[in-house]
Design a protein around this nucleic acid. Structure first.
Lengths: 341, 341
DNA sequence: TTGTACGCGTTATCAC
DNA sequence: GTGATAACGCGTACAA
C-alpha cells in the first residue's frame, strides 16, 4: 500500500456525501443522523483515513502548538521540568515544539522566529538570554519559568520561602554559625530570593552568619576546586563551632559533603548541610542530603495552565489586553534527611 | 499593532509584483534582479512580514518535523539523549515534536497518530512499549535508539564491547572473582549485550565469575534494599577474595559503593567497581566511579543522520524501498576512575 | 525575468 | 440535516 492520501473528497465520493458533511462528522457529529455517522465511520476504516492537522490549522488558525526554549537538559532540574511540561499533553492536548538554547541571543531569536512561523499559540521560556522586555513584544502569550520576568507572566518557585525554611532548619539544628554559599546572582533573577531569605531570617533572629558569594566554576571539576577552597576557608575561620551550611543547590551540597566525608570518614556533628532542588544526587549521596524540594510537577502544570488561559483569551472575538503581568509563586517543600540531624 | 496577517498577496500589492515573484524571492532569489530583490526586502521590513511555514507545508508536503517518543526525562541518559537530538537542529534544520511515553501502548499509538496528523517526515523512538514490527508498519522512516529493533533501523551503543572493556579492566585489576549484577533483561534488547560480553570474556580467559541476575526494584529505595542484599550475599560467599563488581549502570554502582564505603569508611582494596553510562552520579560519587561511557552525542547525531537519509529518499520521485534494516553500533569509551585502582 | 491559474486539505458561510 | 463555494497562505506548472 502506498502513501496515505485519502482526503475528505475521497470520503465524500465514497459515501456520496459532500466534503462539508465529512467535516461535520469530525467537528459536530451530532448534527448528522446516527445512521449517517455510522456510514462515514465505516468509510474511514475502509479507506484507512488519516487526518491532516496542518490543513486544519491553515483553515482555522488553531495550531495547538506551544513553543519551548530551554537552556539544556544536562541539569536534572530542566530535564524534569520539560518532562512535566510535556506530560500536560494528557490534560490540555497541546503539542510541544522544543528548542534547546545555545546561550546565543541571535540563535534564540531565530528559534522564536521559527516557532512563530509554525503558528504556535504560546511560548514557555526557561532560557535566560533574551530580556523579558523583548519577549513581551512578541505579541503572543508567554510564560517564563525561573528567570528574569519583569515584563512577562511567570511561574517560579518561592525561593525566598525556601531559603527561610532551610535557614530555619539549620538554626534549629544547634548551629553556632550559618553560612550560605552561592554564586553572586543578580537581584532580578528569582533565585536571588535564596540569598535574601537567608539574610533576612538570620538578621531577624540575630543569628551569626556569613554570605559567601562567589563564582563557583563552570564545570564540575572547577566547582569542586572552588568548594574545596570554601571548605578550607570555613574550617580555618570557624574551628570548633557548629557550622550550618546552606548550599545553593544539591550538586554543590554533595560536593561539600564529599569533601568533608572524605576528610573525616564521616560527617562530623560539627557540620550541618542543606541543599536546594531535591535533585536525585541529594538522595543518592553518601549520606542522604536534606534539601528544599521544588515542586517541579506543580510549576510545570501551573505554567501550562496559565498559558492556556492566555491563549484562550486570544481566540475570543475581542481579546482583552492583559493589564499587568502575573507572577505565580509555588512554595517549595522542606525535605529533612540525614545531613541536618 | 494588531496580529500579523501580512501575506504574499499584501507584499505583492505593496510592491506591484505578483505573488509568484514574492514566492520566488524566498525560494529562488537569484531569478530576480538585484534591484527587485531589494524592493521586496524593504517591503518585508515595512510590512513586518512573518512567514507561515504551515501554509508552505500544505503546498509542498515538507513539514521538516521529526517526531520523538521518549520514555521519560528523569533518567539522565534519556534527558541527555534528547538534548543531543534537539541540538542537531543546527545541523539538519529539522524541528522536533516530542512526546513522553506513559508505558501505555494505547496512549502511545495515539501519540503516533497525532504525529502523523502533523505530517512528520520521520520518527525517532526510544520508548519500549510498541514492538518494532508494528512500528515498521507505519510506512514512514523510523530510527530507534537502545530498544528492541528487529524490524526497524536503529542506533545503539555496542553494549557487548562495553562489557568486554569493563570486564577486561576488572580482570587486569588483580581480581580473584568477577561478578556482574544486572536485572534479567531479555535477549532482544540491546543492553543484553552487557551480560553476554561479561560472560564470554570470563569464559574465554577462564576467570572465576558469577552472574547475579535479578529484579533490582522499581524505586531508588527498593533498589538500595536489593543491592544491600546482594552485597551481603557477596560478602559472605567470597570472603578474603578480591572482588570485581561490574554493575549494570552508574546508579547501581553508586549504591553499591555507598554501602561498602559506609561500612568500611573507605573502599577497601578487596573491592573493585565499575558502572555503565557515564552519568553524572559516577563522577559525583564519594569516590569517582569507573564506568563505560556511552557516546550519547554521537548516537544522537547518527540517529538523526540516518533518519535524514531515509527521509530524503522518501522525497524522491521513485523512492526505492529499503532492503533490510540498518543497525548502527557506537562503541562506548572506557572511563577509568578511582574505583578500579 | 515575471505573471496566471490552480492545487494542497481543511473549515466557515451561506444557502437549501 | 445537508451541500456548494469561498477562504486559509503558499508552491508550481505553464505561459508570456
Amino acid at each position: 500500500m502506498g502513501k496515505n492520501k485519502v482526503t475528505f473528497d475521497d470520503i465524500a465520493k465514497y459515501t456520496n456525501f459532500s466534503k462539508t458533511t465529512i467535516s461535520r462528522y469530525f467537528n459536530n457529529p451530532d448534527s448528522l443522523t446516527v445512521k449517517n455517522q455510522e456510514i462515514i465511520a465505516q468509510a474511514l476504516i475502509d479507506l484507512d483515513y488519516q487526518e491532516n492537522k496542518l490543513a486544519k490549522v491553515l483553515a482555522n488558525g488553531k495550531s495547538e502548538f506551544i513553543g519551548i526554549i530551554i537552556p539544556n537538559l544536562f541539569l536534572h532540574y530542566y530535564a524534569e521540568m520539560l518532562n512535566q511540561i510535556l506530560k500536560t499533553y494528557e490534560t490540555f492536548g497541546y503539542k510541544f515544539l522544543v528548542f534547546v538554547s545555545t546561550d546565543n541571543e541571535e540563535a534564540e531569536r531565530k528559534y522564536i522566529q521559527e516557532l512563530l512561523a509554525y503558528k504556535i499559540e504560546g511560548m514557555i521560556i526557561l532560557s535566560h538570554t533574551i530580556p523579558s522586555k523583548e519577549l513581551a513584544e512578541s505579541n503572543i502569550p508567554i510564560v517564563t519559568i525561573e528567570r528574569e520576568d519583569k515584563y512577562v507572566n511567570s511561574v517560579n518557585t518561592d525561593n525566598y520561602m525556601g531559603a527561610v525554611q532551610a535557614t530555619s532548619l539549620l538554626a534549629k539544628s544547634n548551629c553556632d554559625i550559618l553560612l550560605h554559599i552561592n554564586s553572586d546572582v543578580h537581584e532580578t533573577t528569582p533565585s536571588y530570593g535564596r540569598i535574601a531569605g537567608f539574610r533576612d531570617i538570620c538578621r531577624e533572629y540575630s543569628i551569626e552568619h556569613e554570605l559567601i558569594l562567589r563564582n563557583l566554576g563552570n564545570s564540575y571539576h572547577e566547582t569542586v576546586n572552588c568548594i574545596q577552597e570554601v571548605f578550607g576557608y570555613i574550617k580555618k575561620k570557624y574551628p570548633g563551632k557548629n557550622k550550618g551550611l546552606f548550599m545553593s543547590n544539591d550538586t554543590h551540597a554533595n560536593i561539600m559533603l564529599n569533601l568533608i566525608f572524605r576528610e573525616y570518614g564521616m560527617l562530623p556533628g560539627e557540620y550541618r548541610i542543606i541543599g536546594f532542588d531535591d535533585s536525585p544526587i541529594a538522595e543518592e549521596a553518601i549520606i542522604p542530603i536534606s534539601t528544599v524540594g521544588q515542586q517541579i510537577e506543580k510549576i510545570a502544570y501551573e505554567a501550562v495552565a496559565l498559558l492556556v488561559e492566555q491563549m484562550n483569551e486570544q481566540k475570543k472575538r475581542r481579546p482583552k489586553p492583559q493589564n499587568g503581568v502575573i507572577h505565580k509563586k509555588i512554595t517549595p517543600i522542606l525535605i529533612r534527611r540525614e545531613t541536618t540531624e
